[in-house]
Structures are given as C-alpha cells and as structure tokens.
C-alpha cells in the first residue's frame, strides 16, 4: 500500500461518494451543534458569575480551611454527634420503610395492567410526578413547619419523596412483569386480586426489595444533610460548625459520617448481590 496522491484521492471520492469527504450538510450540522453547546456553556458560566480569578482565590481559601481541619476534635460533643448520627440512620431506615410499604399498593394502583381505569392510574401518576418534582430538602423544610424541628420531620420528608419515586418504579416493574404467569392464574379461574398476589407479586418482589435497599443506601447519604434545615440528624451539627468556622470540629464530623455511609453502602450491596441478585434500574442508580 502507498499513500495516494491528489488525483487518486479525487478519483476515489468520485467513485465512492461520502467516504472521503463527509457531505457538507452533515459536517456543518455537527459542528454547529458542538459550537452551540460550547457557546451556551461559556455564556451560562459567565452569567452565573464564574471566573478563573474567583476560582483561584477560592481554592486558596479552601487550602486554608484544609489546614485548619487538622487535628480533628470533638470538643466534648462526641456522644451528641453519635446520637445525631443514629438519628440520621433512623431517619433513613424508617423513611425508606414507610415509603416502601406505601409504594406497594400505590404501585399496583398505578400499573396499567392491574388497574384498567385510566383516570385512576393517570391521576395517581401525576400526583407522584408532583411529589418527585420537589427535592426532599424542600419537603423537609415544609415538614419542619408542620410537625416542628427534629428527626420526625426528616422521616416524613424522606418517606414522601421516596414514595413518589418508588411507586412509579414499582408500577413500571409491575407493567413489565411477564404476562404468561398472569394468564395462567386467570385460566385457572383466579380473580384480579389472585393474579396480583400469585402471578405478579412473586415476579416483582425481588425488584422491590433491591430498590428499597438501594434507596436506604441513598437515603443515608441524603439524611446526613436534612439537619441543615432542622429536620434532625448529623446535618444540624455539620452546618452549624461550618457557619461558625469551627473547622476541626467539621473534620471530626465528616470523619464520623464517611465510614458510616461506607458501611451502609457495603451492607446494602452485600444484601443486594447475595440475597437478591437483582440490580435496580439505571434511573435509580444515577441518583
């Protein structure tokens, strides 16, 4: 083989159009998309007041913060921190449990193949959309207004927010369930309730369980910050110590949180892989 000269290139381009030079429309279309994205990104960054000068200045400040974080100290608050961490775990656990239990009936109601009435399942889906559209921190803030400061507000916030997500996923899992089993139960004279219990439930239960475990894992992470708005847990101390620039205390709290979260991650993954063997869908994993 040898590198072709210009006449050979031209001949080949004529013989096999599009192979050597891409059609100009396609080429410029792609370039326009890339350039448009780039311009949008730069404009947005500028609009939000981002700049390299501020970045450098801020990084310097972060360096100072980092140096003030060592050595970490609990300043006599050790047991308060442990209790708050316990609250965080309790919030994640009960919030996920409540949401999982509430989502099972809601999931069946929202599934097209179980409830034929389009009004019910459309209406339910929209309510779930509304719940999901609002971040759990907003719900936490609202529940603090309703039931007062403390972990109870956090539990309700997690439960409500997760019900919005889990019920939708359950409904989709139920809709995706294999129809042959349902037909079998129906053929044997089973009622609608029998179909749900005998044919659909055993198929989707592992998916439910796996989702719930994964959400417990994710909720442990989000429960660490609900305290920022007063809804219980370690987040209250974390936000407070940052506000008063007590950086070595901040470091201590973070060093408490990280292994706890890692442990929950590990347990959840262990149970999901060993006991269930079903991974949650991509939509859940990117949370």
């Amino acid at each position: 083989m040898s590198r072709p000269d210009s006449t050979r290139i031209a001949a080949l381009a004529a013989r096999y159009p599009g192979t050597i030079y891409a059609p100009p429309g396609q080429l410029w279309g792609r370039r326009a998309v890339v350039a448009g994205f780039f311009v949008a990104f730069l404009w947005a960054s500028d609009h939000l007041g981002m700049s390299f000068a501020r970045l450098l200045q801020g990084l310097q400040d972060l360096g100072i913060v980092a140096s003030m974080m060592v050595p970490p100290t609990s300043a006599g608050f050790f047991w308060d921190y442990v209790h708050a961490l316990g609250e965080t775990l309790a919030m994640a656990f009960l919030g996920t449990l409540l949401a999982s239990l509430a989502s099972i009936p809601l999931g069946f109601l929202g599934a097209r193949n179980v409830v034929a009435n389009p009004v019910i399942h459309f209406g339910l889906r929209r309510v779930l959309d509304v719940i999901r559209g609002v971040d759990s921190l907003v719900w936490a803030l609202i529940f603090v207004s309703v039931v007062g400061l403390g972990p109870f507000a956090g539990i309700l916030a997690i439960a409500l927010n997760d019900t919005g997500v889990l019920a939708k996923m359950y409904a989709e899992a139920i809709e995706g369930a294999d129809r042959k089993a349902s037909e079998g139960v129906a053929a044997a004279g089973g009622s609608k309730a029998d179909i749900a219990r005998l044919a659909i439930f055993p198929q989707v239960f592992p998916v439910f369980l796996s989702n719930s475990l994964y959400f417990f894992e994710a909720n442990t992470r989000s429960a660490t910050i609900l305290g920022v708005v007063g809804a219980g847990g370690i987040g209250f101390f974390l936000a407070d110590r940052i506000r008063v620039n007590a950086w070595s205390d901040v470091c201590f709290i973070i060093l408490l949180i990280l292994p706890t979260v890692a442990l929950i991650d590990y347990l959840s993954r262990f149970l999901r892989e060993r006991a269930i063997g079903v991974e949650p869908p991509a939509e859940a994993l990117s949370r």
Binding site: S45, G49, M50, Q57, L137, V228, L238, L258
Partner: peptide, 23 residues
Amino acid sequence: TVPELVFALFFVFAFGLGPMAGV
C-alpha cells in the same frame, strides 16, 4: 458520598455567596 449541600456549605465560605459555589 459527600452530598452536594455539604460541598456547597464549604464553597459558600470559600467562593462567597452565589451560584458559583452551587455550580
């Protein structure tokens, strides 16, 4: 593992109030 809100608490201190810290 570190939630964005915790990063944001740090960054508001370092980069000042405003969207840059959030971004």
